[in-house]
Computed example of a mutant assay.
Amino acid sequence: MPPECCRWLVDDAADLARPDRSHVVIDIMPDFITIREGETDQPRHIQVDQYWIDPRHRDAHRDPSLRRFMFRRAQDGIAALIRFNERDALTVFAPPFDINGQWHEVGGYAREQTHSLPEIVKALSG
């Protein structure tokens, strides 16, 4: 497996199972989602880690060790974008995102493809 393939090879994810066992590959490239609190509010960009899930194991993102990793990332303001393929996705907000400390999963499909590096830099630097 090449070193640039996934976050599993990075120290902060070393406690996770290998991708061939967990059925999850954590993309090393950050991305973002855009949310609006209300119709008149300005859009807000939130950084996400992308978790590519084997579609035959759609609940793999609920693994307790992976959820602990998502929680740690959420403490740094990073949400989780669970991708089953290029289109089907689920956004997961760990308890640090919620005033009541709850997990939230927002289902649907990814309206946008993975953003380009210049788009990511622009969205997350402002």
Rank of each mutant, 00 (worst) to 15 (best):
M1S: 15
M1F: 04
P3M: 02
P3W: 00
C5F: 13
C6Q: 00
R7W: 13
W8S: 04
W8D: 00
W8N: 03
W8K: 08
V10A: 10
V10K: 15
A13G: 02
A13S: 10
A13R: 11
D15H: 15
L16W: 07
L16H: 05
A17Y: 13
P19N: 05
P19E: 03
D20L: 03
D20A: 01
S22N: 06
M29P: 01
D31V: 01
I33S: 02
I33F: 07
I35F: 07
E37S: 08
E37Q: 12
T40Q: 13
P43F: 02
I46D: 03
Q47T: 07
Q47E: 15
D49Y: 09
Y51E: 00
Y51F: 15
Y51S: 13
P55F: 01
H57S: 09
R58K: 14
R58E: 12
D59W: 02
H61N: 09
H61I: 09
R62S: 00
S65L: 11
L66T: 02
R67D: 01
R68H: 10
F69W: 06
F71D: 12
F71A: 03
R72S: 08
R72I: 01
R73S: 13
A74C: 05
Q75R: 14
D76M: 11
G77N: 04
A79C: 04
A79S: 05
A80C: 12
L81R: 09
I82Q: 05
I82P: 08
R83Q: 10
E86F: 04
R87S: 11
R87E: 08
D88C: 02
A89K: 00
A89V: 09
L90N: 10
T91Y: 04
F93I: 01
F93P: 08
A94T: 05
P96S: 01
I99W: 01
N100L: 06
N100D: 12
G101D: 00
Q102T: 09
W103I: 03
W103S: 08
E105M: 12
E105T: 08
G107R: 06
G108E: 03
Y109D: 09
Y109W: 15
Y109Q: 13
R111K: 13
E112Q: 12
Q113A: 13
T114L: 14
T114H: 15
P118Y: 08
E119D: 14
I120N: 01
L124D: 04
L124Q: 10
S125E: 12
G126W: 07
